[in-house]
Design a protein around this nucleic acid. Sequence first.
DNA 1: ACCGCATGGTTGAACATTCAATGAAGGGCC
DNA 2: GGCCCTTCATTGAATGTTCAACCATGCGGT
Lengths: 163, 163
Amino acid sequence: MNGETTDTDWLDQNQQRSWRAYLVGTTLLMDRLDRELREQHNLAMPEYEILVRLSEAPDRRMRMALLADSVSHSRSRVTHTVARLEKAGLVRRAACESDGRGVEASITDKGMAALESAAPTHVAGVRQFLVDLAGDEDFAAVGRVFNAVTDKLIDTNPAADIR
Amino acid sequence: MNGETTDTDWLDQNQQRSWRAYLVGTTLLMDRLDRELREQHNLAMPEYEILVRLSEAPDRRMRMALLADSVSHSRSRVTHTVARLEKAGLVRRAACESDGRGVEASITDKGMAALESAAPTHVAGVRQFLVDLAGDEDFAAVGRVFNAVTDKLIDTNPAADIR
DNA sequence: ACCGCATGGTTGAACATTCAATGAAGGGCC
DNA sequence: GGCCCTTCATTGAATGTTCAACCATGCGGT
């Protein structure tokens, strides 16, 4: 018998500090990178990320679902983002031949141009405000940690069907 | 004389991987923690964070501007967030006595109760999906990195007045 | 062939965040 | 005291994201 319903395992002071640093650092960083992209290239970060995936895809085209998975955004969100990009002429959509349900998005020449123009400033920002501040060891640690986070969250699906 | 306008210093493959892991990991993590908080306690993460700061403040009250700085959200955003919390009865607002412009937000008893009920599950999530996956060394590295990011971004103000 | 169910994708409304404009009050300077 | 400039905070509109509902197609079983 136990008076409490399983006592909470709180974070210790260092963990607490690190967690909060991560929270506010991430807020500020995303904010800043997004702002730069927007002001200098008229692109939001989610849009930029979509363009990157498309540019790297074989034949520069990708199924919507795959695109969504690759950036870990909801399908709905990707639909909206791609719709904006399409309206701006940076992306095109076409029905998928092999699968009647499918849609393939592809990046246009104009999209490639926009991406190539935006990439250098974006990378410079990522360096200036993150990578170059970190030291290789620490940055590698960040990589390990968030790879683990990703793996864990991918299979611990909140829409758990079977248990 | 230089043919190009300063060639870009791209990320190497490891940096690239780490950067992307951080991006998608953060997306998934925030998504998940927010969802848990919402479904189980009817609170969004930004609301939860506000409650935390208020609960820790001397006399459980804080000026709006300070609150905004402490979570690194825009003042406008905090105004809206606090308005929601106030409507839910978790926070109260009162004019500041010493400064006619100021407003002090304070957490109500109901707010404290909501926070105390939400905190254990939230912390459990933070552990399960981040802290416990990381290893102390690596997680400390995350802390260092994002402290540096924060420091850098705080004084490299995008609204740079003087240079 | 048909049924039932899962998947791919879109839609529009609800909700949250950003942005620009606004008003009220403090502080320095003459 | 009056002026100018800054800071504090809010407002409402524009924009982006989430959420639930929806339709169409594919796939498996019978």
